[in-house]
Design a protein around this nucleic acid. Sequence first.
DNA 1: TCTATTGTTACTTTAGGGGTAACAAATGTA
DNA 2: TACATTTGTTACCCCTAAAGTAACAATAGA
Lengths: 255, 255
Amino acid sequence: MYPELNPRLICNLERLGLTENEAKAYAGLVSLKEATAREVHELTGVPRAKVYEILKSLAKKGYVEIRQGSPSYFRAVDPKLVIGEIKDELINCAIESLAQLNELSYEFPTTSPVWCIQSDWGIRNRIREILAGVKDELIIFATNPGFLREFEKELKHIEKNCKLIIIVDELEKFRKLPFEFRETGSAFRDFIRNLVIDGVRYDEECFLIADGKESIAVHRAGNKREAVVIRLPVICYLQKMIYNWLLEGKFVMDF
Amino acid sequence: MYPELNPRLICNLERLGLTENEAKAYAGLVSLKEATAREVHELTGVPRAKVYEILKSLAKKGYVEIRQGSPSYFRAVDPKLVIGEIKDELINCAIESLAQLNELSYEFPTTSPVWCIQSDWGIRNRIREILAGVKDELIIFATNPGFLREFEKELKHIEKNCKLIIIVDELEKFRKLPFEFRETGSAFRDFIRNLVIDGVRYDEECFLIADGKESIAVHRAGNKREAVVIRLPVICYLQKMIYNWLLEGKFVMDF
DNA sequence: TCTATTGTTACTTTAGGGGTAACAAATGTA
DNA sequence: TACATTTGTTACCCCTAAAGTAACAATAGA
């Protein structure tokens, strides 16, 4: 209907704080250069009756200039200035927020031993954090190379300074990655592949154990990814034993 | 009621895209470090029944981590990471918007000769633009030093390379500024001071004429500021004549 | 077994934004 | 001048997201 308007642009402008109609009107005005309310309405689909108050509110923010008359004419302020201004304001807002939040939390302890993380970037952050803290030894179990690829640099660094053990379900899948891999037995491989809980197939698994005292388990069911961070030494130790078992066929409890 | 929560912080977080309750819950969690839903509710005033879905939505975004159980415990992800992530996303959004808007407007001509600007920063932008474009001569009439102070640097630069005439209603007010001023006659001064239109006193005035072909008039009524940009050569010329008249007492029309 | 707390559901209320219809004012035209 | 058209404004309605409320089952603790 209004093919001129890039919906992604409108969405972006909304994310930056404009309403849908404000975004449409501003974008429309930018492409019209200079226009009457009616022209903005016709290009953007914003109801004619609304165009006036919307352009007025944009003018109040300084994003639009008005030439009074009948008809009045409207003109968009240079996007470079407008977007720059919005960006600066949001950045200041972020800086101030951070300062205020830091006042609330003087130190930032990770008190509890078990936490669940439900967003992709949250998981990535945590993994990065854990990788950065590895001192002696890192054990990884993975069924998917994607994650190893993402942290290749960090892992290479660990490989140089610590002991790095990567256990995978199938060597072939990891062929392209520059690490030494160890393969789990076929029984476990089949088990993992066919794992279904409550009707959901868990098609991606990754465990990390750092220095035998902190572990993170990432799993994906369908397109939802989740991670559990565990700082219980006993559990980590147990996990270590289990990997030993998977790998060597022996299960030794020595604590 | 809930003195712990800085309302400015909540407002900032809302500006960054969180809802009011999300902002409260996150800020509350940051200061509590680790807490149950009830504790978050008690500190922040978010209805207890709502805390769960709100924290879940925060967890989905990766801003909060959850430890399942009864009661479940919640933990805020480090504000540095959270705010950093939000900031990055908004900056990307701004960059993309700008690119998309630039696609719409290849050149950015200022076609029409009269435009009205209704926001403070819009006015400032325009003035800066005009000042940057002065080639030969700049005439200013001002009743308030604030604006001159703001653009002191730009004006000094113009003074060096062009002819700069600053006319003021009262020398005394501008004493502290490092420019040469010329004073208007007392009749005009009184006129300006007592100017009332539709019951509104115009208590601040500033006119700029750049190279006799572009002018901007800024006026303030109460706390509302507005500016009119005029590019009509004839009008600018007339204005110039009028200032001449104000200053020297002679009015010469020679076009 | 009883009680208190937790976690969930289904509702109401509210406010902001979007959309529509109608009309007065301004403009243009026969 | 009378009429038609367009412009600018107002008063509505509708919808949705979010906030707030009440009630209840599940869980945990005494």
